[in-house]
Design a protein around this nucleic acid. Sequence first.
DNA 1: CGCCGATTCAC
DNA 2: TGAATCGGC
Length: 447
Amino acid sequence: MSTSIVWFRRDLRLADHPALLAALESTDEVLPVFVRDPVLLAGGGARVERLEASLAALSESMDGKLVVRTGNPAEVIADLAQEADCRQVHISREPSPYGRRRDDGVRVALERHERELVETGSPYAVGPGRILNRSGEPYKVFTPFSRAWHDHGWPGPGRLPVDVRWATAPGEELIGRSSGVGEAAALDRWRTFLAEDLGGYEEGRDRPDLDTTSRLSVHLKYGEIHPRTMLAELATHRSASGDGAHRFVTELAWREFYADVLWHRPDSAWRDLRDELSAMPYDDGPEVAGLVEAWREGRTGYPFVDAGMRQLRSEGWMHNRVRMVTASFLVKDLHVWWPVGARHFLSLLLDGDIASNNHGWQWVAGTGTDASPFFRVFNPVTQGRRFDPQGDYVRRWVPELAHLRGSDAHEPWKASEGYDHGYPERIVDHAEERREALRRYELARDV
DNA sequence: CGCCGATTCAC
DNA sequence: TGAATCGGC
């Protein structure tokens, strides 16, 4: 008999997917089901309860064919170890590189997930919630967490206890599957990164004009490569790659830190982690709706910001440096509450991860653990000139500025022909809005 | 994983 | 005069 394992994200509402429901109900197979997303499950909450309730109801209606199990995938796999023909489907409401169903945006992935993910049920070297200080409390600051994380250590790459075959769910078809997805592609990207860009990663990671980041975030998100695999290989690259390997390990540590923070404080996904700035006055409603829309569409009139927002729309990915600058622009220049931007990013980023994304936004907004102080305001022009020195990144994404040479692309207002090809004027004055942000900061602090 | 203005310093 | 440095936000 063949057995399928169906992975659900906690935010999937079965009732919204009649085709999937029908497929599940018509199958003769036994379908053990478990809910994935180990970080968010820690928080529980209404949506988890709703999903579990709907799965339980479905199981009953299917007369026991559907075996609902919530928890560690490894345990489910182990239970099925005697099954020779085991299939797996990963169903997610998130945008994914795997292609999309036209009707409801559900993406179906059939590529193999990496064995460590299946073994551990966690896409982290050290699962969230495991690193505590001497008092048994979670760390609130990155650096001590990072040290403890190193000291804790992690197992090497794992071995899957069963030969799992992967297929689509009955009745599901895969539409528009693109190349560059799956475990083989992830490993290929990883090897290329090690060979070409790890050595210069310390500087290269900040350069959106060069393609010198790892580009592994999507693969990490979908479990196509596991951090334990990467850490094991990085250990052997340490000396040869100078600071690059060290920096990359630190970036992995940030990812684990934010997952850990969210594990302990699931409410921080959409609310300020710290309440010092709870009195910060933000703008909302119709008066800023147009400005936010300009930000979303990449027509703020600030070339570096617009390039980033257009890359996000077009590619489903944005360079990390530009994420910080565009986020700062929404929060500090448009005075908009960070969840508005975080939601927009999550809706378009293929690598969108709620812990990294939303805590990154809180870092920018000055409300998070280890956050930057609110008064640290990015200047979109200075940042652009520093990290896109030749203006190549701007010209790549903003064709209206393609006629400007070199770093002139960062300041079209200084060129007589700057606006000749339809580039929009600045929607706000950065110097003015920076002062306004600091004024509001003073107001919020005095409360 | 700041920016800016003031001040100091180097020429 | 402009680059480096410092402190407040």
